[in-house]
Design a protein around this nucleic acid. Structure first.
Lengths: 151, 151
DNA sequence: CAAGTTCGTTGGGAGCCCCAACGGTATCCC
DNA sequence: GGGATACCGTTGGGGCTCCCAACGAACTTG
C-alpha cells in the first residue's frame, strides 16, 4: 500500500524546508534568470549595478562606487576594466585629487544601462511569475524585513 | 553644506528594489547565520546536508547522495573525505557492486547530525526573527512558489 | 564478448565574497 | 614645514558554490 513510497527522507525534508535553504534556491534562480537576461547584452549583474551607480553618482571615484554598491575594490577594478574596454565608461584622472579616477558614463554606457535595467526587470517579472500582484507586495515587504534583520 | 547631503540614487534604488537583489541579500544573510552556527561544531552547510542524506538513506552510494542533495560529484568527494576524516561516516566497498562506496553514519555522525539540525534551526529562527508566526507562514509559502517557478 | 553506462575520482574553470599588501597621494596636527 | 595617518587604485591570494570534462574500474546490455 503506502509502503510503496520510494524512500522516506525526514531529515532531508527537514533541512529542505528551512528558510535559509529555500532562500538559497530562490536566490539562485533569480541570479540565473537575471544573468541569462543580461547576457543578451554581454554583461553580468555587477556590470549592471556599477553602470547604475555611475549613472546616479556622475563623475565618481572607484572607492566611492565600491562603498555604494558593496563590491570589493578588487572586483571593482575588473568590472571597470570590462566597462572601459567596452567603451561604456571613461576613467579620467581627478585633477582635485590625483589618487582618484573620475568614472563617467559614455553615451553608449547610458543607453546600455537603461537597456540592462529593462532586461533585469523582465527577468524579475519571470522570477515572481507565480505570484499575484497582491502576493508580490506582501512577499517583497516580508523579504525586505528578513534582509534588514532587525524588524 | 550641500556636499554632505545624501545624493539621489534613482537607478541604484531601482535595482536594489528588485526581488532578485533582495533575495540575494536575504540568502547571503541566511548563509552567514547558518554558517556561523554550524562552525560551532566545525562543520559547514554541505557537510550537514550530506549527513542528513546519509541519515535518511542508510548505506548509500556517493552518486546517489549527489543526486539527492544536488551537490556536484566533485564536491561530494571532498565533503565525504572531511566527514570520514572526522569519524562521522564510513566508506565501505559495496559487495554487490564493487564500483560503489556504501556510505553509512557512525554513532558520532548521527549525534552530530542531530546537533547540526538544531543549530541550523536556531539560526533560521534568528533569520526570520523579524516576522510573526503568521507572517512566517505566508512568507515561506510564497517563497516556496518562487522557488518552484511554476505557480 | 563488445558497446555502452555508471562508479568514484581528479582536474579545471567561472562567479561571487573577503582580506592583505603595495606605491602613490592627500590630509591632519604638532 | 614635516611627520604620522589615512585613503586611493591596484595586485595577489584564498574560500565557497556551481558546472563540465576526463579517466580507469566495474557493471549491464544486446
Amino acid at each position: 500500500m503506502a509502503e510503496n513510497e520510494p524512500q522516506a527522507e525526514p531529515e532531508l525534508d527537514r533541512i529542505r524546508a528551512l528558510p535559509s535553504w529555500l532562500l538559497n534556491r530562490a536566490s539562485a534562480r533569480g541570479r540565473r534568470l537575471v544573468s541569462e537576461a543580461l547576457a543578451a547584452e554581454g554583461m553580468r549583474m555587477p556590470h549592471h549595478a556599477v553602470l547604475c551607480a555611475v549613472a546616479d553618482l556622475g563623475p565618481v571615484a572607484q572607492a566611492e562606487l565600491g562603498r555604494r554598491t558593496g563590491f570589493d575594490p578588487k572586483d571593482m577594478v575588473g568590472i571597470l576594466n570590462d566597462l572601459q574596454g567596452a567603451g561604456l565608461i571613461t576613467r579620467a584622472p581627478d585633477p582635485a585629487d590625483r589618487r582618484k579616477n573620475a568614472i563617467s558614463l559614455t553615451g553608449e554606457g547610458g543607453r546600455l544601462q537603461r537597456r540592462l535595467t529593462l532586461l533585469g526587470e523582465e527577468a524579475n517579472e519571470v522570477l515572481l511569475g507565480g505570484l499575484s500582484p497582491r502576493e508580490r507586495e506582501v512577499f517583497l515587504e516580508l523579504l525586505g524585513r528578513v534582509v534588514a534583520g532587525e524588524a
